[in-house]
Design a protein around this nucleic acid. Structure first.
Lengths: 201, 201
DNA sequence: GCAGTTTTAGAACAATTGATTTAGAATATC
DNA sequence: GATATTCTAAATCAATTGTTCTAAAACTGC
């Protein structure tokens, strides 16, 4: 063998992720990346190939630590409807607190890189489908126990929540107002409650 | 005076809009713009100042011709709920037909340029507020006539529709599937119908 | 401890970026 | 019709882009 790496691969990957998250793909230069990662440009190319490949790794890292983590924490620790409410509460909280207005790297990428790059398009569509599937699983579980009404199809309700989720992510980058985001989510989450006549007040 | 312009200003502005719409702000070079507009770089700078100013003009042009036009056509020609349904039907139709997956220039800009540019942030927040206000006006009008239930606040319902709208716009750039987009909108639009017990089937 | 390999650091690459300059062509006013 | 003004075209600007090269440094295995 030979000389070992001086840097921690996941640490520098995390730094790259932050940079892409903050400025997007195009507006982030390789020099910006190298500096924020604390390594030199040559090391970057040696370790990650090229800018696009690094971005792919950073995006995958984001999905794992952000979405994967959230689903794992909520889906198996809470009742179905409570899991969905916690999911949206956490996203709204983070959106309001996010002073940089970075939003969600996955959503940002869905608009910036996916439409022009079939590889990213497939990857991102896959992750969005997983978000949808998480919503659907929660709804179906709640419908089985009766805590979520079955008057509407779980498929459409899951699609609605996916859309609401994306809408919050977009809106938060321009108007991160809690009243707006919570008001947006409320009617959708109310749809998941039984006996609509008793819910308001 | 002196020599007059050889090009039609709104025609070249429309070409610039298409280019920004297709590739975004960063990924569109001044040379790309000049070529697609059919003018030279010097003329571009002479007529529009710089790239950022041209983009501002192009975005304003987009808002006028796209959103302004749509609101004008629907709000005063249709009943409130029918206007909202037509609004979403048209957006979904265009999203599915849009082979380039350009999405909505306003939404794309809300993610690419608004977070880093206070001027654009204010402009885009303002337009999004106008979309929300359009939804709210329709809902309030429908609630007055009774064709939209008053059990939920018009403010929150308008916020929901805004979020659903943005969600459709995002999703359509990666997964422009009609069943998905229509399934997403359906539960939200159903909320605007009276007597929920009689609506399904 | 030498050979072999892979890391580093920084200069350097060609290409492209947004923007300007120079020169010349075209027109309205006087 | 001369003058002044504003247009167009193309070359050109410095800066930045993604990427590679060169050379020195650092480690492992024999």
């Amino acid at each position: 063998m030979a000389r070992p790496r001086e840097f921690d691969e996941t640490a520098v990957l995390d730094a790259a992720m932050q940079q892409f998250w903050m400025y997007g793909y195009e507006a982030t230069s390789v020099r910006d990346l190298a500096q924020s990662m604390g390594i030199t440009g040559a090391s970057l190319y040696n370790a990650f190939g090229d800018k696009r490949t690094l971005f792919r790794r950073a995006l995958a890292h984001y999905v794992e630590t952000s979405f994967g983590d959230r689903v794992g924490r909520f889906e198996h620790g809470l009742a179905p409807r409570a899991a969905l409410e916690a999911f949206f509460r956490e996203i709204i909280d983070r959106s309001v607190q996010d002073e940089d207005r970075k939003g969600c790297l996955l959503v940002n990428s869905a608009l910036e890189v996916a439409p022009h790059d079939p590889d990213f398009q497939a990857t991102i569509a896959e992750v969005l489908a997983k978000v949808e599937a998480f919503f659907r699983r929660c709804i179906q579980a709640g419908q089985r126990t009766g805590e979520i009404p079955s008057s509407q199809s779980a498929e459409d309700l899951a699609r609605l929540l996916l859309g609401v989720h994306l809408g919050i992510r977009v809106l938060a980058r321009t108007r991160p107002e809690r009243a707006l985001l919570e008001g947006l989510a409320r009617p959708a989450l109310d749809l998941l409650k039984p006996s609509r006549s008793s819910q308001h007040k």
